[in-house]
């Protein structure tokens, strides 16, 4: 507890971005879910964090600690929280078009082709059709789905569907990308590939990325900082900076600095997750 208080007290602490003004700022965020019979679940307790422009920040923590709740608040899907959340200096009121979200499930419309699914945000936001189509095509190629444009979600594998969801989150070129365990359903090999691709997307498009994951190795591989949460009530217990040079390749798993960072986070989670494996995905 003292560790967190120390950081909160000192300006430029670890739960603030290393440079620039914060794009996302969260102050004293708490969330209580009302339950049946008047019970209440304290899902989040006094969360403080800042994410800088172009920064890649991951959130790890045991299942049920409130990660998805944080993401849903940032996405503007939960309104009844206490505390202060602001994006680009403006306090958050409902969903913002500056945010693209990839949920835990792909959530594709099964009646729309892969291409039409990617185009959905463009339709809702009323973007130029021709430009959006060209961009959707590009994004599908980028996630390795060239030639699958006309396929329905029912004809795609789980991993392919998740990749369509990633393309969909990028179509309106949002400044912020929120990802909730986007690769949870993928096999280790595909997951490694997707991680390399995600790192490339983030670097190329200079997007600010907030990633929720169960995989410590994945978080360390991708992030500038890793926020570690604990549960009941959900709070951030540590902020771990990742000082590994970029671009990072998959061979980073043999790097001593990588291993040390993974180990440090694992110790923090203290047996909440399975043992470290020499793979990005696990």
């Amino acid at each position: 507890m003292t560790a967190i208080d120390d950081r909160r007290a000192q300006p430029g602490g670890l739960n603030q971005p290393r440079d620039g003004t914060p794009l996302i700022a969260v102050r004293e965020l708490s969330k209580v879910y009302p339950m049946a019979k008047g019970e209440r679940v304290q899902a989040l307790s006094r969360i403080n964090m800042e994410i800088g422009q172009g920064e890649f920040v991951s959130l790890v923590g045991p299942s049920g600690c409130g990660k998805t709740t944080v993401l849903r608040i940032l996405a503007g899907l939960i309104a009844d929280y206490t505390g202060d959340v602001s994006v680009s200096g403006k306090s958050l009121h409902g969903p913002s078009r500056e945010v693209g979200v990839v949920f835990q499930d792909a959530n594709l419309m099964p009646w729309r082709t892969a291409l039409a699914n990617v185009l959905l945000p463009a339709e809702v936001l009323g973007l130029n059709r021709k430009q959006a189509r060209a961009r959707a095509q590009e994004l599908l190629s980028m996630v390795g789905l060239e030639g699958f444009e006309r396929k329905l979600p029912g004809e795609l594998s789980g991993g392919m569907r998740q990749r369509v969801a990633i393309a969909r989150a990028l179509i309106h070129d949002p400044a912020v990308l929120l990802l909730d365990e986007p690769f949870g359903a993928l096999d280790a090999m595909t997951r490694d590939t997707m991680n390399v691709e995600l790192a490339a997307i983030a670097a190329r498009s200079k997007k600010t990325v907030f990633l929720i994951t169960h995989s410590i190795a994945e978080a360390v591989f991708l992030s500038d900082r890793v926020l570690v949460m604990s549960s009941r009530p959900g709070r951030i217990v540590e902020v771990i900076p990742v000082q590994l040079p970029r671009p990072r390749g998959l061979d980073i798993i043999v790097d001593l600095g990588f291993a040390a960072t993974v180990l440090r986070i694992r110790r923090l989670l203290d047996g909440d997750t399975a043992s470290a494996l020499p793979s990005i995905a696990h």
């Binding site: 849903r72 996405a75 503007g76 899907l77 409902g94 969903p95 913002s96 078009r97 945010v99 979200v101 949920f103 499930d105 959530n107 594709l108 419309m109 959905l120 945000p121 809702v124 936001l125 969909r168 309106h172």
Partner: peptide
């Protein structure tokens, strides 16, 4: 499906 609805709501 609430998930699909979330996708739309997140877009405003």
């Amino acid at each position: 499906d609430q998930g699909r609805l979330d996708v739309l709501r997140a877009l405003g």
